[in-house]
Design a protein around this nucleic acid. Sequence first.
DNA 1: CTTCGACGACCAACATTCGCATAAAATATA
DNA 2: TATATTTTATGCGAATGTTGGTCGTCGAAG
Lengths: 221, 221
Amino acid sequence: MRMLVVEDDRDLNRQLCEALEDAGYVVDKAYDGEEGHFLGDTEPYDAVILDLGLPQMDGLSVLERWRRDGHATPVLILTARDRWSDKVAGIDAGADDYVAKPFHMEEVLARVRALVRRAAGLASNEISIGEIVLDTKAGKVTKNGMSVKLTSHEFRLLSYLMHHKGRVISRTELVEHLYDQDFDRDSNTIEVFVGRLRKKFGSALIETVRGLGYRLQEENA
Amino acid sequence: MRMLVVEDDRDLNRQLCEALEDAGYVVDKAYDGEEGHFLGDTEPYDAVILDLGLPQMDGLSVLERWRRDGHATPVLILTARDRWSDKVAGIDAGADDYVAKPFHMEEVLARVRALVRRAAGLASNEISIGEIVLDTKAGKVTKNGMSVKLTSHEFRLLSYLMHHKGRVISRTELVEHLYDQDFDRDSNTIEVFVGRLRKKFGSALIETVRGLGYRLQEENA
DNA sequence: CTTCGACGACCAACATTCGCATAAAATATA
DNA sequence: TATATTTTATGCGAATGTTGGTCGTCGAAG
């Protein structure tokens, strides 16, 4: 999962990024509204953390423009504690959730998890497909109840695929969501990891759609 | 485990802190409502001890604001013995428990233990995993019934991990809960202590999840 | 039906990061 | 001061991620 943090306070921005990276996400950052808007417009994020008080273009405008342009990316708003009106306006503008500053990093993480989960239309922290169960909170995967050991990239890949099961995912989309901006476009890492996942879960799990990408099938185990 | 004590009576504050530290917690203190509110809002405590009669902002308001902002941190209220109404109001405001002043330190400690325990979803003061039993009340650990000698940091680390068994805990989270504010971010102390615990309990106890953190497994002993 | 080309799978070597043990230094405790 | 505990420093080794190459396979065009 790939996140964008738009926050002008360098220190806070760094803290947020660290926490998110700790939690296993890939994170891009922006320090002003314009940059943030551009990135959110260009890159396919799975969630955005957006501060409201920003230089260049304030957070609310950024959010409004995104929504006007049809971006549905989940957005978590950061508001100063005393700016109630901002909170309301943020929700009107299409924010998915908000947290008042100052906040507990853990709370932000919990809310981000919830956003990603909801975006995938799921109710809990667990996604299952056949005998395979992925627990995003515990960071654990089991097959037939047996825990399966995955490396962090393997986990991310599987996680993304399971969040979008049934849909064909292009290699480009995977690269965009699993890596940050500068990454060698023509590399075959994704294929390698798909191969490794198949070795661990059986080749039936991930279906190859030639020329388009990969798909996780509900029926298969 | 990391605690916050909000109490304007310096003497009492000090006593509480000492007792808590003796019991193996890491403790931050605040002498007025504002400071207390800020800290509780910012730092991830495992429990808070909150006096109601405070300068700047009274305890009840502090608590109400925390709860309104979605903080679920367990809070133990201190009330004067004759202020029944306060007690009721405290519970309404979201306190988890209360103690009337003057009190026995023992009672406070017991209630704090209970709060931490409940927050972790446990029923007793003993947490066990395989043959290892940790008694939070006695501050002792046994393996196969044999007492194991741990240093205070070793105990704290093990305790935190056991309170969250099954979940992957990042090194960052551990540092945040085992040390107070200013602590060198890139230090390898945690790794050293994990190593020591493994030496004492066997390497199967603490599983490392590369790139993410550590996890205590229910299954393993 | 055959052939060709493109795409993906697989493999093995390489580079890198990460965690661990160890020991020495610093700090707290008795 | 002596002792126990905590922290820092460093090098090693294993786990992980990446690259490049080869082979197999699918599908379309002849």
